[in-house]
Design a protein around this nucleic acid. Structure first.
Lengths: 233, 233
DNA sequence: TAATATAAAAACGTCGACATTATTGCTCGA
DNA sequence: TCGAGCAATAATGTCGACGTTTTTATATTA
């Protein structure tokens, strides 16, 4: 259920910024389906704002390629496709590899500590995945994301991290779309956790070649899983 | 002199899209200075539109990090800094290297032909740089950009090209800012042209290692030039 | 019936106006 | 002369309203 922006008192952002976050979530999680038309009347109702902040938020999602626009025909959710999925995941693998590579060169003690902390939290919260609870799965996702962010941030490059985040978000649409139709398999997550441990080890050993190889696989193995079982309609 | 959006009849885009292009140009070329406040009254006058399209355009530039916003304090041109310049140029070098690397793997005959065509045009238009004519320099820039785009497009990855373009634009702010205070040196452009030829040769020979090395230097040598002579105030 | 033309409804993009917030300029007092 | 407090001025962010375009529904004709 969407909250009206005004109801969040601690947030001093303008409506556009607040709506941006909610709208992005709604697109990434699939509340709005790929290709779906985003009628202003509906959006106004859902987020309890006028058209101006909505159009500003949509304009930003336009640049992030999460929506598309056609003059006089309004906004639509950016469609998904096998081609885009392949493109996103492969580019993301390269970018993430770049982050890891640079992080190994530049990461300091605080970077190592951050990785260990995030890895620990992630490992300890494996239980969150034991039931089919979307809320818990999302919490696990947050920790998983934090782990990888902790690694990537070692690269120390804001522009690279900006690109990385954008690609992560685009990819998460596909993951969520897939999750809507498929159960998660315990064995997959076990393998996942193994990769995390191997990655952490390689990073702390500053074994660049190994770490880059692992992160590439870590990004692409979900892709390979999704590729054949996801449906685009 | 800014043109009113309406006066361009062939363009069927909405005002926001049209203003976006002009505004971006004005920021990249330095018509609006880094850090400068973008008052709505002034923008309305310059582009002859209301606040709604303006805010939509600015929202997009926000994502591209060409403007910044503070609630109730409006928009400002994104400030420039030595730190950002270093970050942008280095990330850009990595991304461009990635494009080249993938293009060598995937580029076909049409790709090679496109490079040769663009390289030819670029070489033939060296005379554009012989005088201090901004109009001609800009035309040369367009050809230079087209040459590098022809190369990068061989990678076949829309998402990677999207990132590449964004970084190119951000970097061009710094180049233009530098050009405002400095003359171009003939010898620099001769060296530049030499690099283009070497790059073209390496690409056609599919010599990945060499091509990647050249493109890295080609991106970074302007940076090294700028770094010590540019002023941030 | 099917296709086209026409009318009605809905949706879009833009502007001006308004409330709220920030900034500027001024007065007053030390 | 300088600074604090206060009034005025200006600028921002948002909404509702309006003209235009698109879409849907209805009628017309072959």
């Amino acid at each position: 259920m969407a909250l009206s922006p005004q109801s969040n008192p601690q947030n001093s952002d303008n409506f556009a910024t607040q709506v941006l976050g909610q709208l992005k979530q709604d697109i990434l999680t699939g509340y709005f389906n790929p290709g779906e038309k985003l009628k202003m009347t509906r959006l106004k109702e859902r987020y309890q704002v006028g058209v101006s902040p909505l159009r500003e938020a949509l304009s930003q999602l336009l640049v992030e390629q999460l929506v598309v626009v056609e003059n006089q025909r309004g906004f639509k959710v950016h469609p998904i496709s096998a081609e885009e999925m392949e493109d996103i995941y492969h580019t993301r693998a390269e970018i993430e590899a770049l982050c890891v590579s640079q992080a190994i060169d530049r990461g300091d003690d605080a970077w190592e500590a951050g990785i260990l902390a995030a890895a620990h939290q992630l490992k300890k919260s494996a239980e969150l995945l034991e039931e089919e609870n979307p809320e818990k799965i999302q919490r696990w996702e947050a920790l998983h994301q934090a782990f990888h962010r902790a690694i990537a941030e070692g690269c120390g490059s804001p522009s690279l991290l900006h690109v990385r985040l954008s690609l992560y978000e685009k990819a998460s649409r596909y993951r969520n779309h897939w999750l809507k139709e498929n159960m998660l398999d315990r064995s997959i997550f076990d393998a996942n956790q193994k990769e995390h441990e191997a990655l952490t080890e390689a990073l702390l050993n500053r074994d660049k070649e190994k770490a880059v190889e692992i992160i590439r696989q870590h990004i692409l193995s979900p892709y390979r899983l999704l590729k054949d079982s996801i449906s685009f309609d």
